[in-house]
């Protein structure tokens, strides 16, 4: 293949990517546009004369919501790991027979529409008094990540050589001890992938937040944006600034952990 031909492909690739990412660019552009210029015709294609008023409003009004989302995201990661890592180990190594049924249930669980889960949780939380609480939302959000986590851990851990665990057993380690000091360290990449997705899903959740935490004092950032849209449709720079800030975790993920992201998508869909 000649050099000139590859160059041409790169140019086309850049063009496609730019087209695809235009909405993201537009979000940044609008977040920096002055309120007075928002309705300009033709619109301002570049933020030549930027305003940071939108971002100032984010720090004024949305900082607490960002904190809430962070707490919910981290809580969800913790809960997901605690439930799914040992279960994945058991399904992969300890009960290779009975595991099939549980794996099947988990696949089915992933197909249940979240609006249905939201209603079920609402009905339960009303009685328990868990509506508008952070932990209520952590539990609900974790239902998105737990089936994925168990399946991913099971897939990875069944690949760990049996000899490794035998060696630990010979040394007199209990099953728990083997899990802790042999299996978990070897599965570091899976732990990372599951944590990343659990965090991102909890951070991005809107359905559970808008149903289970509608009147809470501590609302996550997604709900912050939603309420913002409802309250002042004139300040689109502030809305888009909030959206841009809410996208930061996704950006970090992509830069720091790109290969885990692509790996996670395919693992969830194709491999067992």
């Amino acid at each position: 293949m000649t050099r000139r031909r590859t160059w041409w492909k790169t140019a086309l690739g850049v063009f496609f990517t730019a087209l695809m990412l235009f909405p993201v660019y537009w979000m940044f552009n609008v977040s920096l546009t002055k309120t007075g210029d928002m309705r300009a015709d033709p619109p301002h294609w570049f933020p030549w004369d930027p305003t940071f008023e939108g971002y100032a409003n984010v720090f004024d009004q949305q900082l607490a919501n960002l904190g809430t989302s962070l707490v919910i995201g981290l809580g969800c990661v913790l809960l997901t790991l605690v439930i799914s890592a040992p279960a994945g180990y058991a399904l992969a190594k300890l009960l290779p027979r009975g595991g099939g049924g549980i794996a099947f249930l988990l696949l089915v669980a992933q197909m249940i529409p979240s609006v249905v889960m939201a209603m079920g949780f609402y009905a339960i939380y009303v009685r328990l008094g868990w509506l508008n609480t952070v932990w209520g939302l952590i539990v609900a959000d974790s239902t998105i990540a737990v089936p994925f986590g168990v399946l991913l851990f099971t897939a990875f851990m069944s690949g760990i050589p049996q000899e490794l665990m035998h060696a630990a057993k010979v040394d007199g380690a209990s099953t728990w001890r083997t899990f802790q000091s042999v299996v978990l360290p070897v599965s570091r990449n899976s732990v990372l992938t599951v944590s990343l997705f659990a965090f991102l899903w909890a951070w991005s959740d809107f359905i559970f937040a808008s149903t289970l935490n509608r009147n809470g004092d501590m609302i996550p950032i997604t709900l912050g944006i939603y309420n913002y849209i409802g309250n002042n449709t004139t300040q689109w720079n502030s809305i888009m600034a909030t959206a841009a800030v809410a996208s930061v975790p996704a950006a970090i993920l992509l830069i720091v952990a790109q290969r885990y992201v692509a790996g996670g998508v395919t693992a969830g869909a194709i491999k067992d």
Binding site: T6, T17, P23, V24, W203, F206, M240, A243, A251, V265
Partner: peptide, 28 residues
């Protein structure tokens, strides 16, 4: 081709953004 890996990674962005972010951007 040159940059294909980077560009392919950039294509993941819409999928990673919170849905409410994308939806409100499209609304505007």
């Amino acid at each position: 081709f040159r940059l294909s890996g980077v560009l392919r990674a950039m294509f993941l962005v819409p999928w990673l953004l919170p849905l409410i972010v994308s939806a409100s951007t499209w609304s505007w």
